[in-house]
Structure formats: C-alpha cells, structure tokens
Design a protein around this nucleic acid. Sequence first.
DNA 1: CTCATCTCTCAAAGCGCTTTGGTAATTATT
DNA 2: AATAATTACCAAAGCGCTTTGAGAGATGAG
Lengths: 344, 344
Amino acid sequence: MNLKALAKKLQLSQTTVSRALNGYPEVSEATRRRVEEAAREHNYRPNSRAKGLATGRAMVIGHVIPASTQHEMVNPVFGDFVAGASRAYATFGYDMMFTRVDDGDEEQVYHALVAKGSVDGVILQGPRVNDARIPLLNRIGLPFIVHGRSSGIEESYDWVDVNNKRSFQRATKFLIDLGHRRIALINGLEQMDFAHRRREGYVEALKSAGIEPNPALMRSAEMTEVYGHHETRAMLKMEDPPTAILAASMISAIGVRRAIDEAGLTLARDVSVITHDDDLSYLRNGSDVPIFTATRSSVQHAGEILSRMLIEKIEQPDAPNQNHMLEAELVVGRSTGPAPETRR
Amino acid sequence: MNLKALAKKLQLSQTTVSRALNGYPEVSEATRRRVEEAAREHNYRPNSRAKGLATGRAMVIGHVIPASTQHEMVNPVFGDFVAGASRAYATFGYDMMFTRVDDGDEEQVYHALVAKGSVDGVILQGPRVNDARIPLLNRIGLPFIVHGRSSGIEESYDWVDVNNKRSFQRATKFLIDLGHRRIALINGLEQMDFAHRRREGYVEALKSAGIEPNPALMRSAEMTEVYGHHETRAMLKMEDPPTAILAASMISAIGVRRAIDEAGLTLARDVSVITHDDDLSYLRNGSDVPIFTATRSSVQHAGEILSRMLIEKIEQPDAPNQNHMLEAELVVGRSTGPAPETRR
DNA sequence: CTCATCTCTCAAAGCGCTTTGGTAATTATT
DNA sequence: AATAATTACCAAAGCGCTTTGAGAGATGAG
C-alpha cells in the first residue's frame, strides 16, 4: 500500500493525502479524518526511503563504533548508554543505526555516512585524548555530540561529560582521609579521555596531600574483570602493597575483589576499594547498602541527555554549541575503611 | 556530489556511470577506470536512500529490542552478540538498525518496519516460550532468523540456538556425580525459551538420579548480579541449604559468589557453583584456569552465524529454513568440588 | 558489399514520497 | 454586484538512483 494507491482509493490526489497525513492546515477536517481512517485501515506507512529522498532527512541517528582496539560494543556500558539514547530516539521518531568501523577507517566511514546520506547526525562515543574525529566532523559539517570530551582539542563542539577529574579527586581524597597512603589506580586505557582525566584527579589529590604518585601503583588497560583481577593480584604481591585501590568500572572492581579474596584478605578491612559505577542495570552496586564505595553517574541518563541534544542540534544546526557537565556522586559502601596501619 | 553531477563532469550519461560503478559488463574497461577514478577523487558515494528506492533493497538489518520488561539492550550479552553480528554485516555491506519497542507494540513495529521498507530482514532476539513474533513474521513475510528457539511453536523457521537443555543436564549430572543432592537453579526469566529449556535439562538430570526436584531451590528472574546475590543469600539461610548452585549467567554467578563469601563460606569447598558462560569479552571466565566451572558457548560467535544466515536468507528468500544447533562445552573451573557431606 | 552481431553508450521511465505553483469554488469586503 | 480573500484541492516537478529499451558504431560472416 503506497501513497498513490491510497489516494486512488480515496479519490483524492497524492498531494492532499500527503498533506492530510502530515498535518498541513490546508486540508479540511472532514477530509483529514477520512484519510487518516483509510491509512489506518490499510496499514499505510510512508516508505521511509522515499520520504527521506524527498525531505532530505533520514530520521536516523548514527553510532559509529570502533571494532578492534576499543571494543566499545562489548563493553557493558554500551548497552546501558544505548538504552538511554534509544528512549529519546523513540520519542522523537528517530531510528538508530550502528556502523562498525575498523581502526583507521574512521575518516572514510564518516565521509561515507554523510555522502550516502544515511544519517542526520552521529554520536561520538569513547573520545580519546586529542581525538581527530572532532575536527573531522566539524569540517564535514555532520551534526554530532560527543559523549565525553577530548583533552587537547581547542575548537568548540557539543558534549556531555561526567566530571571525571573531580570525582576521582574526591574519591582519592576520601581514601587519604581514611589514612591510606599507598593508593593504586586501576584505570581504563589512558588514551581514552575519561581515563586521562581520572588520573589527573587522582594525581592531584595525592599531591595536595603531599604523597608522591607511584607509577608502580598506576595501571591502565581495557576495563575487564580479568584485568582488574590480574593487576590487583600483581600489586598485592609487591613488597609494599597498596592498602586502597581505585577501579575504573564495576567490572574491573569485581576482578579486584576476586583478587583480594583469593589473597586471603578482606575487603575494606585489609584493602579498601572505590570504583566508578556507571549504574548499569545488570551490575547494580548492590541493593540497599552499596557493595562498593563508588563515584556514581548513570550512563543511561547520559545517553538520554546526549540524544536529546543531538536531535535538537539536527533540528537547529546553527544553534551555539552546548556543553553539559554531570557531577558524579560519591556513595559510601562497604568496600572502604581506615588504612590498616592506622589501626595497629 | 551526486550521480548527475559526476556524469556531467565525465561527459557520460548517468546510466553509464551507474553501470561502471556497479560492475556491469557492458562498460568498456577504459571507461570504467575513468569513472572509478573520478568517483574516488570527488568522494562520490551513491545516496543510500535513492539507491534503496530504486532497488527496493535497504541494505539494512533490523534488531527490534523490547524496552521495558526484558531489557535486552542492557544485558551485557547484547553487546557481544551485536559485535559478532556486526562483523558479518560489515563484510557484506549491511548496516544495522535498532528499533526500541515498548511491550505490546511489537506487532505494530514489525508491520511498520516492513511497510516503511527500512530493513531487509530482522534478527529475533530473546524468543520466549510460544513466541507470537514467529508466526507474525512468517505471516508478514519479512526474512528473519531467531536467536534461540520457541517451545510450542510448530511452524518452521530459521534459528541458531545453543543446546541449553543438554548443557544444563550435563552440568547438573556433573554436580550429582560429585555427590551433590541439594542443587539449586538460579535461572533466567522462565518465559524466556532458553531458561525454560535449561530448567528441563536440570529437572531431567535430577530425576534420572532419583532426586525429586525441589521448587524452593528453583528461582527465576532477570539475570542481574543483585538477583544472583539475593537468591543465593536467601537459600543459604534455609534449613537445608543447597550444596551446589547452577547459575544462568556469569553476572548472576558473580552475585552468587558474593553471597557465598558474605556467608563466610568457601566456593567449591562449601558450595559448588556452575554457571553458563556466554564468553563475554568484558567478563571472561578467568584467564588460565576458569573461575567457574561452566557451560560455555560464545554468544559473539552465535551472532556471527546468525547474521550470515540472515544475509543468505535475504538474498535467497525461498531457500528452505536452516537450523543450527550449537553445543556448549563443559569447562571445569575452581568453583566445584565434592559435596560437603561426602567428606564428613 | 550487405546483413548480422557485438560492443558501448544513452534517453527516459520509474521507485514513493514532498512541495511548488497553481485553479476552482466559496466566503468576505467594498 | 463586482472584487478580493480564503478555502480546499490538484497536476506536475523533483529528490538521486537503477533499469529498460534502443541506437550508433565497429566488427565479422557470407
């Protein structure tokens, strides 16, 4: 069932039917109702490609996802982020499209996306320090919003980010106040901007307390469970093991806890742990009292804000850039306690 | 840059340029090279909507994702599945599109998808027992492949599934052979077909060993960490607590372990645990020796098979339906041991 | 040399929609 | 009553591509 057939059935022109369905005023109410009724009855829906061709709008938002190195897609954070974003898309009638990109092809992919006209805008996920995609997208002129920021990029762009530096600064200070001196950081990949900023916060807090940051206590990799376990295990075997650990995600924190258990130590009593908590649906930080003391910020919520901003941007491309800083809350759970030395 | 402009620049007709770029034989090699060169130089890519309109093919594969009850999207399994699928899509030039659907609207959404012509086929995720979507899609005639099966649906359809019944039967038998008698099942939602089958396997194994299944030891919900923790904690407080637990996913198994730890018990020695392991990138079951004894089957691999099958199906809609059964392997880790009673 | 056969190219139609630039018919204004 | 304005509709063009059907020129066969 297409517009032509529907128009014929109604003894009306395509123009009138199209206008009736798209809410134009120059159609009588009686006709509009007739048309709407018939459309419903015949299950008519405008072909999206034809509509897109005619309007120049795809009603699709793109997510370009690096395939090999960063594995953005398999990071459980991805699902919650997308779930949040999809809420806004659904509300405003957009679909979302994912394009997988192998490293190095990104420029190609963005060019293709705009040339093929398959999306109206994109969300830039997992920005790295000095991320070349930002100037690229500004140059191409495809509307985009960055989830995070990119240190080193001077030009203006829209972003939504968590105050990563501040939250890790606070978390570190919290541990210092508990008497900890040897505090480890099990970070994400440090080319990722968020990880970079978290380290800054961590280092700054140490320095303000007169503690010299120790490179042996700073690890960086993809935030898997196995990684959290592996690094913790290694550090607990050191001559002077850390008494507290900052983890970059719930998942690596779970690995951290496993290593602590295996070493025969007790969480909070022997080793304190603070993690960043993206408030993932399948990995909630406990139910009543949090499992881990954590810096918490819902990534699902971020996804929703981001996608709304993108839709606005698409509809008003010339509006000034917007930035949105989210503050993480520091929730106290059962994974932190005074430094062991203090008690002796 | 569009076809018309490119043709003018080359002093050729649109027909010839189009044919040259699409590999038709009736274009001289010299012309083809000229055209390809110019296309590259001007960064020309056919507009996907126009192409789709003309060919009737969208080159897009749809994933329709239930929003509220099942939270398919926020289940970390989702990311790995999609990552696997996207590999095949990228290879064959398809994009993937996600449509979020609120419960109850599914029929609407599928109808809309085919009416709007926005996808060439869909992947049906998370089939439930007696899932109405299968007859619906068969009726509509939209190519689809099911990730899993649906007990109770008699008609034929394409699917890829893990032999869930068999794998949970084996896991249960493994525990029985270790002397366990009170074996709990912390399952997924039992309207989900996979969970249903897993329970069948579990129950059957118990019965063959002459053990009467105990409803108090069978729990069912979404497979979050908190849920695994909560149910385990409750069961360990029972008068006759289980000595072994079967968990439905790594994530709930992590919750199970947490509850065991909190109860002051030791994994494997006091309580054995077997989990199903989807081989998620961020939640690998340990590195050398598995953390958990597990039934393992890579969901990423399943995604890849499934998407290949769908692409084939789209290209040959009349081919007979294909089914693909994957066997999970039972890997022995450090979470299982003889039943405590045996040692006494 | 003529007719048939290839080889290469093209003009134009069509995919299903929106939108421009109308025109009748009705109502309001002078 | 004549003119202007408004209302309700329509034919046709255009979005950027593919594909049909045809034709010009070159080559081969008889």
